[in-house]
Design a protein around this nucleic acid. Structure first.
Length: 563
RNA sequence: GCGGUCGUAGCUCAAUUGGAUAGAGCAACAGGCUACGAACUUGUAGGUUGGGGGUUCGAGUCCCUCCGACCGCGCCA
């Protein structure tokens, strides 16, 4: 084989590993002729003493070689040293340990990553467009009140995932569905009407199942201001749709303001009612009927859900001809999957039972495997050691706006996405507001601000030189290498978060980057008298700043220049 | 009862989907600024991964079975 790597053009970690894989494949052929072909793959060991990367080929080879993994690994390394001495320029260490082959890259490989990140800026590691269209639905709420915090969590998760997917080259379309088609809108209309009447008659009864809380009062007042008392004593059939429509529009507008304040802009606000009016619901149902997956019983139309793993068949169209909520789900997913290759829903904690059902719907529609469902689990709100009570029944709802007022957008976005979506979240308002080292948001932001501060102190010509590209050959301190290695992980981390629908991994990575930077800062004086070293370290700072800013951007958190 | 999600350090959570001695932060204890922001950092201590079986070179991860928590199970949405 020929290695095209030269001193002038240092190898990237990827090319170094590719060279190693090729050499190892040859070594296997030499040492163990006739063995089945094995793909040489790498992973990053958890423990630093095992090097930057390791490969487990010896385990896969051991059986065919009738030897132990340890012996195979040792033999392969001996073969590599004898027949591929060029690898020495790329790897500082190639060691067989307990059956693994552990690799430590030469500093030049890591230096080349730093140079690349400085050069590519915040676009570092982005994948080109891959042509896959993804519909991502999250947050969606009933238009019957202000957004509550669990919907905020779904928004944090969904929007972070959306940005991470864009980074990976997906064509992402984020949408919100307004559940304005069901009986709840009637309830909303009656609730507002009761508030309207109570303005002149304090004894007017509030509906048993109405929406409590004060937030409907201003809507009622606005109606009275604009339209006077003409609805007092009118029949329900006259005012119901009118009141419901005004309330829905007002509340949806409010939800929209909250979401935008939260840093999210939806591509589509889809009214469920509009789907009905456009005949989309009927089209979805027809699709199932045509596929022979429905039957009629007692005047209702059933979907054969049991054929897709559900425990009972489900009604699609009621005896009176009105479609059920399930019909909406069928239709909306049918509609989405016609314009997208994948549909991902981020749902609330009360929708656990729907994961299987939605996947069953996708399969029934002929789109098996193209729907994914994430559940944003419940949030327990704390203020220090004290639990904040949230009784929706009593009208004591804590809204997303309340939380944003108290702790700000940055902390809320970060905390809501910080742990696995499936796990319930304990959210401490006191901690989120705290500007201390207990607070991971400030820890990460501080890293960014600290770098900005160093650039303020440095001379303009140094900064310009560092950004234009400079010799990085002095970067070899363990803290420098550790930081560079961490920065190089960005693309892999984002891809991983996307592939596993695990956006919380990005917050951990952000903390890891900040941690490695702070350690580097403590151990290495940046603005040293040695010009070459100073410029190299400034370049490393710039690369770190790019990566931190990029991760924070994906998370929807600001990257401050000073704090 | 059936189905879903989960159970990891005192607390809050990770663990590159089957890899090596299970890692961080907080809390506890002991250190580090005449240095570019101490909103930082170094170290110590902390575990039978709910229990028990199985699969294999190798299991927190996969399978079975108990225990426990939360959530679903309507011609509501």
């Amino acid at each position: 084989m020929s290695l095209t790597i030269t001193e002038e053009q240092p190898a990237s970690p990827e090319s170094a590993l590719a060279a190693f894989a090729e050499a190892t494949a040859q070594a296997i052929g030499t040492r163990y002729p006739g063995s089945p072909p094995i793909e040489v793959t790498f992973e990053a060991p958890r423990r630093p003493e095992f090097g930057d990367f390791s490969t487990n080929v010896a385990f896969a080879l051991a059986r065919a070689a009738r030897s132990s993994p340890q012996n195979v690994a040792t033999a392969l390394v001996a073969e590599l040293r004898a027949s591929h001495p060029q690898l020495h320029a790329l790897f500082r260490e190639i060691e067989p340990t307990a059956g693994f082959i552990n690799l430590r890259l030469a500093p030049t490989c890591w230096q080349s990553v730093v140079a690349r990140i400085v050069r590519e800026g915040e676009r570092f590691g982005e994948s080109p467009q891959n042509g896959t269209r993804v519909s991502l639905e999250f947050g969606s709420a009933n238009p019957t009140g202000p957004l509550v915090i669990v919907q905020g969590r779904a928004c944090s998760i969904g929007e972070t995932l959306a940005d991470a997917m864009r980074y990976c080259g997906y064509d992402v379309f984020v949408e919100w569905i307004i559940n304005d088609a069901g009986s709840q809108l009637d309830t909303l209309g009656r609730s507002v009407y009761a508030r309207y009447r109570q303005m002149t008659d304090p004894n007017y009864p509030f509906p048993e199942d109405g929406y409590p809380g004060d937030y409907l009062v201003p809507i009622a007042r606005a109606i009275r201001d604009a339209e006077g008392d003409r609805w007092d004593g009118a029949a329900e059939s006259q005012w119901l749709a009118h009141f419901a429509a005004i309330a829905r529009d007002t509340l949806v507008a409010g939800q929209r303001r909250t979401v935008e304040r939260f840093g999210i802009r939806f591509d589509l606000w889809q009214s469920e009612r509009a789907l009905h009016e456009e005949g989309k619901i009927a089209a979805g149902v027809r699709r199932l009927v045509d596929a022979g997956l429905t039957y009629e019983r007692e005047g209702a139309l059933y979907f054969k859900a049991t054929a897709f793993g559900d425990d009972k068949d489900r009604v699609l169209v009621r005896g009176d001809g009105r479609p059920t909520y399930l019909a909406s789900d069928v239709a909306y997913h049918y509609e989405k999957l016609q314009r997208a290759d994948r549909a991902i829903d981020v749902l609330g904690p009360d929708h656990h039972g729907y994961i299987g059902r939605l996947k069953g719907i996708a399969a029934a529609l002929g789109y098996a495997g193209r729907v994914d469902v994430m559940i944003a689990q419940q949030i327990t709100l704390m203020r220090g050691a004290e639990q904040v009570s949230m009784s929706k029944r009593a009208g004591h709802i804590v809204t997303l706006d309340d939380v944003l007022d108290e702790v700000g957008v940055d902390a809320t976005r970060f905390f809501f996405v910080m742990i696995a979506p499936d796990s319930p979240l304990t959210f401490d308002l006191a901690l989120a507001r705290e500007k201390s080292n207990d607070n991971p948001v400030y820890y990460v932001q501080y890293g960014h601000a600290r770098i900005a501060s160093v650039f303020d102190k440095a001379t303009a010509s140094d900064v310009a030189a560092a950004r234009a590209g400079t010799s990085l050959s002095t970067l070899e301190h363990p803290a420098e290498i550790a930081l560079a290695r961490r920065l190089a992980e960005l693309p892999k981390i984002v891809r991983n978060a996307v592939d596993h629908l695990a956006p919380h991994r990005l917050t951990r990575y952000a903390r890891d980057v900040a941690s490695d930077f702070h350690q580097f800062y403590t151990e290495c004086k940046i603005l040293t008298d040695d010009r070459e070293r100073r410029l190299a370290r400034l370049a490393l700072c710039q690369a770190t700043k790019n990566v931190l800013a990029r991760v924070l951007e994906i998370l929807g958190v600001s990257a401050p220049e000073s704090m």
